[in-house]
């Protein structure tokens, strides 16, 4: 039982990370209909910025906040400068454009920050509690708390504010929203900015729990975040969180309990996605798009 609970904890810790990046992916998909392959690399880049800021002597938490703000501005600018010219393009072209961004950001991160692994200190004490034999790390708690706050703020923003209403309106029917006085252009920049800031947070949280920040740090996470989003539904923030957690936990439990799959544990999360999508092609929480007549 304790082993089981410990593995659940491990799974949750990873799942939270997939969920935070997944949220960013969903946010962009909802507002612009783009699957952003560069999301992980944008997060990577901004995490390097966080690291640079700590080297300049900023406390970690302040470095995270400052880099989130910078990421917000950067994300909005990317939308304006790189994505906007492709407004009328086919989805496939946009996939290629975000792949271009993916390559560019990864390489630029290596160029500016070097190839050796960087360590980012924790913004909180590293503790480990044993509760009934189950080890509970402060990492896990902080990650859960941050994700919870993030979800709450995002929910409040989208559901309880005028800006959130406008964001959702643009995502659903941009022409109509514009006729009602919403600047779609501003909302798209806002969507990208928010997503970049969330990605930055995800990156800053990942690094202390791993062996260090390298140019490959985010690629594995991006794949799992995509998996979580596919499981939960591309247009559903809740789906991204639940999907990410399920993927994390499924992965951890497989590692522990299915020795036959040692080395190929990754089959389980992706098998799970396949099964779920066969039963519900729009993902667990996704909506079937109602055709406008």
């Amino acid at each position: 039982m304790t082993v089981f609970l410990s593995q659940i904890m491990n799974g949750i810790q990873n799942g939270v990370i997939y969920a935070s990046l997944g949220l960013a992916i969903v946010l962009i998909f909802r507002t612009t209909g783009i699957l952003n392959f560069a999301q992980g690399e944008m997060a990577l880049f901004s995490t390097y910025v966080t690291w640079e800021l700590t080297r300049l002597g900023l406390p970690v938490w302040l470095a995270i906040i400052v880099s989130m703000i910078l990421a917000f501005i950067g994300g909005a600018l990317i939308e304006r400068i790189v994505i906007r010219p492709f407004e009328q393009s086919s989805p496939l072209v946009l996939v290629i454009v975000t792949i271009g961004l993916f390559l560019a950001f990864n390489a630029l991160a290596q160029l500016f920050f070097g190839v050796e692994a960087k360590a980012l200190p924790r913004a909180y004490p590293d503790r480990n509690w044993l509760i009934g034999g189950v080890s509970l790390r402060s990492d896990t708690l902080v990650l859960i708390a941050v994700l919870a706050v993030e979800c709450l703020l995002l929910w409040a923003l989208l559901q309880r504010t005028k800006v959130g209403l406008a964001l959702r309106a643009v995502a659903s029917n941009a022409d109509s929203a514009r006729l009602l006085g919403v600047s779609a252009a501003t909302m798209l920049m806002l969507g990208w900015g928010l997503a970049a800031a969330l990605g930055c947070l995800a990156g800053a949280l990942v690094v202390p729990t791993t062996s260090g920040l390298t140019a490959g740090s985010m690629q594995g996470i991006l794949v799992f975040a995509f998996a979580g989003v596919a499981l939960g539904g591309f247009d559903s923030p809740i789906g991204a969180v639940v999907g990410g957690l399920i993927i994390g936990i499924a992965d951890a439990l497989t590692r522990q309990y299915v020795p036959a799959l040692a080395g190929i544990e990754i089959i389980v999360p992706f098998g799970l996605i396949l099964v779920v999508l066969l039963l519900r092609p729009q993902g667990l929480f996704g909506h079937v798009k109602v055709e406008r007549v």
């Binding site: 290629i96 271009g100 961004l101 993916f102 390559l103 560019a104 990864n106 390489a107 160029l111 190839v115």
Partner: peptide
């Protein structure tokens, strides 16, 4: 040398 994928990526765009 790390720059070459960046150039490739930008060229794609």
């Amino acid at each position: 040398e790390v720059l070459s994928p960046a150039i490739f990526g930008i060229m794609l765009i």
